[in-house]
């Protein structure tokens, strides 16, 4: 695994890239625009995500969930505060992370297989690379479609391709931004199970954004709810909930039902109607 070669700072801690890493948010805030246009989106996010943990991030649309993930991946830098992965600050695109974006973002001129291969860490040998890609395609049930172009596959297949591409990296931190957003309910459940399988086969820290409270309850060790306090412009941590029980959880348990109502309430939904 030579993904750390181009970042000498990390060669000191020669951890294999596929071990789970902790993520620490340290007073993270982000504002966009300058002068009068300046808008604070996130403020004072303080949180430690343990290695191997699955943290699900919930929050109303536009509250900064994607922005928070981008700060971890290093695609974006917070305006205030820092993000640490495994104790070292994120500075620029971080090879220890892999992202599945909210949209699949596949290269239209390459096959599904080549798109997944794009996620392989640099320096992966051809032989190992193609074996890993083949395995991942099997895992996300796209092995029969590896030669197709993105425009020839469905939205859900594209999202699975995007997930496989992120997994190809064997990341220490896996960032998933509404990875199952475009899937129908049934495929969604299958993909959730798949994610759990993958997580136990290749332990990694997962930060997953979703709008779906049930998905959060099914997947999370802890749930982070982002929200704005009344009168505040910026969102911050409004709740952190540990979800009891081991996965796969019984989707109908009473305890989860109560958490569900409480989560919906904090998202501003009247759960009595659902």
């Amino acid at each position: 695994m030579t993904s750390t070669l181009d970042r000498p700072a990390f060669t000191a801690s020669t951890k294999p890239a596929n071990s789970s890493l902790s993520v620490t948010f340290f007073g993270v805030g982000r504002s966009f625009g300058t002068g009068k246009e300046n808008r604070q989106v996130l403020r004072d996010v303080d949180l430690v995500v343990n290695p191997g943990e699955v943290l699900v991030i919930l929050g109303p649309s536009g509250c900064g969930k994607s922005t928070l993930l981008r700060a971890v991946s290093g695609l974006d830098a917070p305006s205030t505060g820092r993000v640490l992965i495994d104790g070292t600050a994120v500075d620029g695109v971080d090879p220890r992370c892999a992202v599945a974006f909210q949209e699949p973002r596949l290269l239209p001129w390459q096959s599904v297989e080549r798109n997944v291969a794009l996620g392989l860490p640099q320096g992966t040998s051809v032989k190992e690379g193609s074996a890993r890609v083949a395995e991942l395609l099997r895992l996300v049930e796209l092995d029969g479609h590896s030669g197709l172009r993105p425009r020839e596959i469905s939205g859900g297949m594209a999202q699975r391709t995007s997930l496989a591409r992120a997994l190809a990296r064997r990341p220490g931190v896996l960032l998933l931004d509404e990875p199952f957003g475009a899937l129908d309910a049934l495929t969604r459940l299958k993909m959730q199970d798949l994610l759990l399988d993958i997580h136990s086969a290749y332990p990694t820290t997962v930060l997953l954004v979703t709008h779906d409270v049930d998905e959060a309850l099914q997947l999370a060790d802890r749930i982070l709810v982002l929200g704005r306090e009344s009168g505040e412009e910026a969102a911050t941590v409004s709740r952190i909930l540990a979800v009891p029980g081991t996965r796969p959880r019984n989707r109908n348990s009473e305890e989860l039902g109560q958490m569900r109502s409480s989560l919906l309430a904090s998202l501003g939904v009247d759960s009595g109607r659902h």
């Binding site: 892999a98 973002r105 794009l118």
Partner: peptide, 13 residues
């Protein structure tokens, strides 16, 4: 821009 960003996220530059 989204494609470029995705590629950068996977270490291409």
């Amino acid at each position: 821009k989204n494609l470029i960003e995705a590629a950068r996220a996977f270490g291409l530059k």
